[in-house]
Design a protein around this nucleic acid. Structure first.
Lengths: 190, 190
DNA sequence: CTACAAATCGAACAAAGTGTTCATTATCGA
DNA sequence: TCGATAATGAACACTTTGTTCGATTTGTAG
């Protein structure tokens, strides 16, 4: 098939561009990175870049939205209530070079947005299920945003400070903080 | 004094520029706003703009960092532990036109960063005071970031959704969620 | 091996925006 | 009215953007 051939070549080009952008984000501010920088680093022709992406922003988001979605899905592959936060902390530590680049640049915002959306959706569904017939005294979107907001802020803080404690400790701290809130707010045990 | 005269003129010019930027942010994406747009709207000469600010970013941050600091200070003028969140919700609602512009643009990030720094610092100091000699089972920075992260996320969510509940209700929800956490985590009563 | 189609290359281009310079004009206090 | 300071805006060199297009490379089907 022709598809195979085209796809492989194109895919490799996209990979080169993504890698180049990531490398550059480790070196300098995202806003000051030009398309020229990226294609120089990636050894890719100017017109090729624009054949694949609309602009620099497009390269950033199209790649990293996927990462965010992926994170959201991984986080939910088990039936946890309050999702497996430990996994996320661990995954973040293992790939912290990637995430440092994202924190430095503004890529992290894109990922977090996609991640947050997933977390909120799943969390709301699970809480609703757990509640059953009872209604929540606090609107569920408020509860879910409260939880994901706190979680992502801690995750970012942890990264910014070069992960001063282990993922296991972070997870324990987070759960210690969030559990009583949910229990008392929704009268749910878990 | 000459200062008075200069200051007044300069100040007025800066005001014009800030207002123009705010208006423009209501109309279109921050990144697509040019310096030309701003000075046209403000009826200010090009060179005047650059006499006051380094670039567009500088205009944004120098003005809005102040807003963030101001918010942080206002929030602490009473001796609350867990700062007067209600006031912040109310203030946000009263000035929601301003904040909508900021949410739409990316100005909100700048403000939140400055605001968050203040909240964290004050919160940590107060919690430490409240703890006295006892040491916290959870590192205080983690507690404070947990709280401010959750708070700012809820504040943003509330704005994004056009403030579907009253400031009083938001405040009550937030406190209901966060109070048990802190009590159980730090053994503090308040 | 050859032929072919798809992907890449890179030079050239117009367009837009940036930040600076400087001679000129407006403003306001003394 | 004078003088200092601020604002003006045209002109400038420079950077970046996104597009076009003919030449070139690459991988595969036959």
């Amino acid at each position: 098939m022709k598809n195979t051939k085209n796809d492989r070549r194109s895919q490799r080009t996209r990979q080169l561009l993504t890698t180049a952008l990531l490398e550059l984000m480790l070196e300098k501010n995202y806003d000051s990175i030009t398309v020229q920088d990226i294609i120089d680093r990636a050894n890719v022709g100017r017109s090729t870049f624009y054949a694949h992406y609309l602009d620099k922003e497009d390269l950033l988001t199209s790649q990293f939205e996927e990462v965010g979605r992926h994170l959201g899905e991984v986080a939910y592959q088990d039936g946890y209530i309050l999702f497996p936060t430990l996994k996320v902390f661990q995954h973040t530590q293992e790939n912290h070079h990637l995430y440092k680049a994202l924190v430095w640049g503004k890529g992290i915002e894109v990922i977090f947005k996609a991640f947050e959306a997933h977390l909120n959706a799943h969390l709301e569904a699970e809480l609703r299920h757990k509640l059953g017939e009872r209604s929540s005294p606090i609107p569920l979107p408020i509860v879910t945003h409260y939880i994901t907001g706190a979680f992502l802020t801690l995750l970012k803080w942890w990264l910014d400070n070069n992960m001063p404690v282990t993922p296991e400790k972070m997870d324990a701290y987070f759960r210690q903080l969030v559990t009583p809130s949910i229990q008392s707010a929704l009268n749910i045990e878990f």
